[in-house]
């Protein structure tokens, strides 16, 4: 479970998130809202990329402030632009990166990378240069690189924004099949139709919290 208690966040003078408390226990959670409504900051608070200016964020009873490394292990993060997430020049090397950071043995790394390549339909691209992949393949590679370390939660920051319709659907299916808990920041309303819970952010506060249909209605109302 992810728990926010009295959390707020400011960049310098500007308050990006006004104080809020929240518990997230569902398997599929979406966060929608206008640009600049605080969604991305919210996402980055979950895995300790950002620390709250006040209050605490707990992931399975670990405080992101004092247990940064353990929290990173529990929460994976998939960014909007896979180009900014792929670290190594070759596909299989990139997938191995997270395991190398965990000091996993070489033999085990090879096996787990092969399994991950197969799971995300990338086996035929194992030795390919990452920059030669298509947008959809790159996003699959990014997801493979994050899931390989077996996090319990995965935060997706607008995972479909840069993709065409076919690849949007590919990513949606992939998220749907994940065993991990997914927290998806998005503008893509099709993606979240079957989610368990949707938060609507507006000007740094949670404006709505509930089922997808009502949340989407509220979101469209706000956007009007």
């Amino acid at each position: 479970m992810i728990r926010f208690s009295g959390v707020s966040h400011r960049f310098g003078e500007r308050e990006v998130l006004t104080p809020f408390s929240l518990e997230l226990a569902e398997r599929r959670i979406a966060v929608i809202g206008a640009n600049g409504s605080g969604k991305s900051t919210f996402a980055r608070l979950i895995n300790g990329l950002l620390m709250p200016s006040a209050g605490q964020v707990w992931v399975d009873d670990l405080d992101t402030k004092s247990n940064g490394k353990a929290v990173r292990g529990l929460v994976g993060f998939v960014f909007q632009n896979p180009d900014n997430q792929i670290v190594y020049p070759v596909v299989e090397e990139d997938i191995a990166f997270g395991l190398k950071n965990l000091k996993v043995e070489k033999g085990e790394i090879a096996g787990r990378v092969a399994a991950s390549l197969a799971r995300f339909g990338l086996s035929h691209l194992a030795k390919e240069q990452a920059h030669r992949l298509s947008g959809g393949e790159k996003q699959m590679l990014a997801i493979a690189g994050v899931t390989i370390t077996q996090p319990r939660y995965i935060v997706f920051d607008e995972p479909t924004t840069l993709l065409d319709l076919r690849n949007k659907r590919l990513v949606a299916r992939t998220i749907d099949r994940l065993d991990e808990t997914a927290i998806v920041i998005t503008h893509d309303l099709d993606l979240i139709a079957d989610f368990d819970r949707v938060l609507v952010f507006e000007e740094g506060r949670i404006d709505f919290d509930g089922a997808p249909r009502d949340a989407i209605a509220r979101y469209l109302e706000l956007m009007a």
Binding site: F11, S40, G68, K69, G76, V87, F97
Partner: peptide, 24 residues
């Protein structure tokens, strides 16, 4: 900036220190 975040998010090195951040 985002690449550095992604590398940290994938467990490279030690925890980053708390501090002001330019990204939003």
């Amino acid at each position: 900036e985002e690449i550095a975040d992604a590398i940290d998010a994938r467990g490279f090195g030690t925890t980053r220190k708390d501090g002001p951040d330019r990204s939003t």
